[in-house]
Simulated scan of single mutants.
Amino acid sequence: MSTTPRWRNAALLAVPIAALLSLTGPQAALAVSPTAGPPSVASWSSSPVGAAAEVPQVPAPTTHRLIGAASVRLVDTGRHDPWRPDATTRELMATLWYPAQSARGEQLPYLSPEVSTALYGTSDLSAVGTGVKAGTVPAPGRHPLVVLSPGFGYNRASLTALAEDLAARGYAVAALDHTYETVVQFPDGRVESCLICGKVDDRRGAEIIRGRAKDISFLIDRLTEPGPGLVRGLRIDPSRIGAAGHSIGGAGAVEAMREDGRIRAAADLDGDFFVPLPADGLSRPVLLLGAQRHAGESPTANWDETWQHLTGWKRWLDLPEAGHLSFCDMHWLVDSLGIRDQLPPEKAAALYGSIKGDRALAATRAYLGAFFDRHLLDHPGRLLDGPSAAYPEVRFAQ
Rank of each mutant, 00 (worst) to 15 (best):
A10G: 14
A10I: 14
A11L: 13
L13G: 10
L13R: 11
V15M: 00
A19Q: 13
L21F: 05
S22L: 10
T24L: 04
Q27P: 01
A29I: 03
A31Y: 00
V32G: 15
A36G: 15
P38L: 10
V41C: 10
A42G: 07
S43W: 02
S46A: 05
P48H: 04
P48K: 05
A51C: 01
A53T: 13
V55Q: 11
P56A: 14
Q57G: 02
P59Q: 11
P59F: 12
P59Y: 13
A60S: 11
H64T: 15
H64C: 02
L66M: 14
L66Y: 06
I67A: 04
I67N: 02
G68S: 06
G78N: 14
R79Q: 08
D81W: 04
R84W: 02
P85S: 14
T89I: 06
L92I: 04
A94S: 07
A100N: 07
R104P: 00
R104G: 06
G105T: 10
E106I: 05
E106Q: 13
Q107A: 15
L108T: 13
P113R: 15
V115M: 04
S116D: 10
V128F: 11
G129Q: 14
T130Q: 04
P140E: 14
G141K: 05
R142W: 01
L145D: 03
L145Q: 02
V147Y: 04
Y154D: 13
R156L: 11
A157W: 04
L159M: 15
E164K: 04
E164T: 15
A168Q: 07
G170Q: 03
A172D: 06
V173N: 05
E181W: 00
V183K: 01
V183D: 07
V183C: 10
F186Y: 15
F186E: 14
P187R: 12
I196M: 15
G198Y: 04
K199R: 14
V200H: 01
D201L: 09
D201T: 03
R204D: 00
R204P: 00
I209S: 12
I216M: 11
F218K: 14
L223T: 05
P228V: 03
L230C: 01
P238W: 07
P238V: 04
G252E: 06
E259P: 00
I263V: 15
A265E: 12
A265D: 11
A267V: 02
D268R: 04
L269N: 12
F273D: 07
L277I: 07
D280P: 00
L282Y: 05
R284D: 13
L288A: 08
L289A: 13
G290V: 03
G296I: 13
S298Y: 02
S298T: 14
A301G: 08
N302P: 01
W303M: 12
D304G: 09
Q308R: 15
G312I: 07
D329C: 03
H331Y: 03
V334F: 05
S336I: 01
L337D: 07
D341E: 15
L343K: 00
L343R: 06
P345T: 09
E346R: 08
Y352V: 09
G357F: 07
D358L: 14
A360R: 10
T364D: 10
A366F: 04
G369W: 06
A370C: 05
A370F: 02
F372W: 01
L376G: 08
G381S: 08
R382D: 15
L384R: 01
G386N: 06
P387G: 12
P387N: 10
S388G: 03
A389N: 12
A390N: 09
Y391K: 11
P392G: 12
